[in-house]
C-alpha cells in the first residue's frame, strides 16, 4: 500500500522520526538512523566546548535524512528564535522543532512561549514543529499560525512511560487539521504502535532507542511497530464494545435442540 507523509514540502515514506541525543557514540547513532529507515532526525545546538572532541555530529547523519534542529535550552520565545536563526546560519536548513522549557523537573513545554515562537519563526520562513502539551486551543492557534505539525508529548521527556496523554492527543487528532506527531516519553515499540493506531501521522523517538542495550535492533523494532500501527489505522481497525461478539457461527451443534 502506497502511504506517504507529506509534510513541510517533503514526501516521507517513514513515519518514525529519530532523535540523536544520548547515544553512546556517533557511529552507533549513524547505524541506528540507517536501520530505522528514518528520514527525519533531530539535532541540537550548544555552545562549543573547546575541550571536547571536534567531531561534527552532522557528518554521521545519513544524506537521506532531513535534519530538524531543536531549540532545546530555550526558556522563552526569544531564545528559541535566536537558536533557530543560529541553526539556519549553520546550514542545516529550515526545519525547526520548537522546544521551549521553563520547568526543570518534568521538562514540560511552555505552550504560550512556544506559540509565540511558532508565530515568529513561520514569519521568518522556517518550517516549524512545536513540541507542546496537548491542549486543543493552543494546537489550533499553532495550526492557524502555520505550524507544519504539532508535537504533543506522550509523557515527560526521557521517562519512557508511554502515551499518558492519550485522551488529549486523541482529541487533537480529531480536531486539528495539521499532522499530530507524538514526541517524548515513548518507551516501547508498542507505545509507538498505539500512537499510530490512533491516527498520529508520525512519532519521534530518542531515549528509548539511544539507551537500549542494543540500539540498532531497538530502532528496527520501533520502525516495525510504527508501520504496523499505521497500517492498522489506515485499514480501518474497528472499535471495541463491552460484551462479546461471536466470531464463529452460534447455531446449535452436537446437542439436542431443546
Amino acid at each position: 500500500m502506497e502511504d506517504f507523509l507529506e509534510i513541510g514540502g517533503k514526501k516521507l515514506s517513514s513515519r518514525l522520526f529519530v532523535g540523536t541525543g544520548k547515544f553512546p557514540g556517533n557511529a552507533v547513532m549513524r547505524d541506528v538512523l540507517l536501520a530505522s529507515g528514518t528520514e527525519v532526525t533531530t539535532v541540537a545546538l550548544r555552545r562549543v566546548d573547546p575541550d571536547s572532541a571536534a567531531e561534527n555530529i552532522l557528518d554521521y547523519v545519513p544524506h537521506a535524512c532531513t535534519v530538524m534542529i531543536n531549540t532545546s535550552g530555550a526558556r522563552n520565545a526569544e531564545e528559541a528564535v535566536r537558536i533557530a536563526r543560529l541553526a539556519r546560519a549553520g546550514g542545516t536548513g529550515s526545519w525547526i522543532k520548537i522546544e521551549v522549557i521553563a520547568d526543570t523537573r518534568y521538562l514540560l513545554p511552555d505552550n504560550l512561549e512556544t506559540l509565540k515562537a511558532v508565530e515568529a519563526l513561520v514569519k521568518e520562513g522556517f518550517t516549524v514543529f512545536p513540541y507542546m502539551s496537548p491542549d486543543l486551543s493552543v494546537a489550533r492557534r499553532m495550526a492557524d499560525c502555520g505550524a507544519a505539525a504539532v508535537m504533543p508529548l506522550g509523557s515527560p521527556i526521557g521517562s519512557n512511560r508511554g502515551v499518558k496523554t492519550k485522551e488529549l492527543v486523541r482529541i487533537l487528532i480529531d480536531e486539528i487539521k495539521i499532522p499530530v506527531i507524538v514526541d517524548a516519553g515513548l518507551g516501547k515499540p508498542s507505545d509507538a504502535c498505539e500512537c499510530m493506531e490512533m491516527g498520529c501521522e508520525a512519532v519521534l523517538v530518542n531515549t528509548a532507542i539511544a539507551i537500549a542495550e542494543n540500539p540498532v535492533e531497538t530502532a528496527r523494532a520501533f520502525a516495525m511497530a510504527v508501520r504496523a500501527g499505521r497500517l492498522a489505522y489506515a485499514s480501518g481497525i474497528s472499535g471495541s464494545v463491552e460484551t462479546a461478539r461471536a466470531s464463529s457461527p452460534l447455531t446449535g451443534f452436537l446437542r439436542d435442540n431443546g
Binding site: 541540537a44 555552545r47 517524548a184
Partner: peptide, 10 residues
C-alpha cells in the same frame, strides 16, 4: 561572542 555547534538532541 557566542560560538555554537551541533550536538545530539531529541
Amino acid at each position: 561572542i557566542e560560538i555554537v555547534s551541533f550536538v545530539g538532541g531529541g
